[in-house]
């Protein structure tokens, strides 16, 4: 569980995040949604400690991140997996080396055990270890890169998983596969998972706990079931931006009127 309390963050005097408080439970998908530029990435990177914050608390099971020294932060980071917007695989290493990297860096496992663990993680994300292992990231598709990145993120059995727009740049079918995969892994290992997204399909598919960010403030919080009945203007603008969801709203309103 991660608790954020009254978080403020500015860049060069410009407030990007204002008074954000939220609780992220383990074993379910927590989503941070909002328009481009609303501050999702900054919020995520602040929670992980990649950006220093102005004020507020970020509690990882009672441990307050802003108070941690470099060493404590390092230890915490070994419990964190992150999936970046562009996969961020190390392009000088093969697929299997990428997945083994955190193991080689921080585990005391033997070479053989590391290879086995890496192969297990690749299988877990539905990749064929034998075929993909020797390939370089540039030799596989975007969807496969995302999967390899997930495999690398779960290699050390993280307690916390962060995903910054995991399905941007993917076709709807592959995007769904990635979403489902993250959801399965979250439930299976009871991970505290936070996903940044502005993809409505993804929100409707896996959004168990949703936080809506509008211009750096938390404008709404709820579940995917509640999102259509939220009565929040900014949220409605966001949700009903696409024609598909405009149609859904019309039918909803019709049924309400009848």
């Amino acid at each position: 569980m991660i608790e954020v309390k009254n978080l403020y963050k500015s860049f060069d005097g410009e407030m990007v995040l204002k008074d954000i408080s939220a609780t992220f439970e383990s074993g379910i998908i927590n989503q941070i949604i909002g328009k481009s530029g609303s501050g999702k990435t900054v919020l995520m990177k602040s929670i992980i400690g990649l950006f220093p914050i102005d004020s507020g608390q970020i509690l990882y099971q009672e441990r307050n991140l802003p108070n941690m020294n470099r060493n404590e932060l390092k230890l915490l980071h070994q419990e964190v997996g992150m999936l970046f917007q562009g996969a961020a695989l190390f392009d000088s290493m093969t697929v299997i080396e990428n997945v083994m990297f955190p193991l080689e860096m921080f585990s005391k496992k033997s070479k053989q055990e590391m290879i086995e663990r890496a192969r297990f993680c690749l299988e877990r994300v539905n990749l064929q270890p034998d075929t993909v292992s020797p390939l370089f990231p540039s030799e596989i598709s975007g969807g496969m890169q995302k999967r390899v990145a997930i495999a690398r993120a779960i290699a050390l059995n993280p307690k916390y998983l962060f995903c910054d727009e995991p399905n941007s740049g993917l076709d709807p079918v592959t995007a769904l596969v990635i979403d489902r995969l993250i959801e399965e892994i979250t439930q299976e290992y009871n991970i505290t998972t936070i996903i940044n997204t502005h993809d409505m399909n993804s929100i409707m598919e896996i959004g168990a706990h949703i936080i809506f960010i509008e211009k750096g403030t938390k404008a709404w919080e709820g579940s995917k079931e509640e999102i259509f009945t939220a009565n929040n203007e900014a949220l409605e603008d966001f949700v009903f931006a696409s024609n598909l969801y405009k149609k859904i709203r019309k039918t909803q309103q019709k049924t309400k009127n009848n």
């Binding site: 990177k45 992980i48 990649l50 932060l73 390092k74 230890l75 915490l76 980071h77 070994q78 964190v80 997996g81 992150m82 970046f84 917007q85 562009g86 961020a88 695989l89 190390f90 392009d91 990297f101 955190p102 860096m105 921080f106 050390l156 962060f162």
Partner: peptide, 18 residues
């Protein structure tokens, strides 16, 4: 520089690597 803009450096930091 390429590692920086493709977030590979962030990925290292997140793993707890200096």
């Amino acid at each position: 520089g390429t590692m920086r803009i493709t977030e590979q450096i962030d990925a290292l930091e997140i793993m707890g690597v200096n």
